[in-house]
Amino acid sequence: MNIFVLMKRTFDTEEKIIIENGRIDEEGAEFIVNPYDEYALEEAIVLKEAHGGEITVVTVGEEEAEKELRTALAMGADKAVLLNMEDMDEAIDHYTIGEVLTAYFKDQEADIILGGNVAVDDGAGQVASRLAEGLQMNQVTTITKLDIEGTKVTIERDVEGDVEIVETSLPLLVTCQQGLNDPRYPSLPGIMKAKKKPLETIDFDDLDLDEEEIAAKTTTTDRFLPPEKGAGKILEGSTESQAQQLVELLKSEAKVI
């Protein structure tokens, strides 16, 4: 089985967010494999264990993403591909990334492509479905269970808390939701082996894309923190008195009831 995983290097959202002049300050911040992509990687490894084949993890980014690609290799991917955007002069958005991935995947003959259902940094949830459309590939999003027999695929997906059971077939692109599996940690031997596994860099210029045609169609003009909330009121007194105060405040001050 020819298995691919889409991976994004993301800012760890547990970090404190500092914004200066409309930009997120990434100085000294921690970067991680997007947690949802870890579900995709884990599922890819489970698929390989059951069906054999090869796992390629693919990211779009710049050289620094090699660190997260190595983490993916240490977890169990066989090879890694960095689609390096350094040479792209135009602005980049999800439209651009979708086109770059489509250009790369056109020659890959993937049986299955797995991605996270969303990246925790920008939370846009666009790229995987854009790629599926680019490849005219079948898609099933927010999956929580995956069974493959031959080319027949049975999936459970999370639909706002309800479970939808669907039947479909390979080739297929899926996006992974929490509950699908428990991603493994890279083992020490895994980390050692990862250093020798192939990590290929493909420069944007080699992808036969027209920069202007795939330039961003959206522009972020500002980033800002939510308005600082004044310290909340901690209510004092007996339980009955606290309850009375709260109901009164919700009525007359917050005006929500």
Partner: peptide
Amino acid sequence: YSGKAFEK
């Protein structure tokens, strides 16, 4: 960033 910031 999980609702910690907004973008325009």
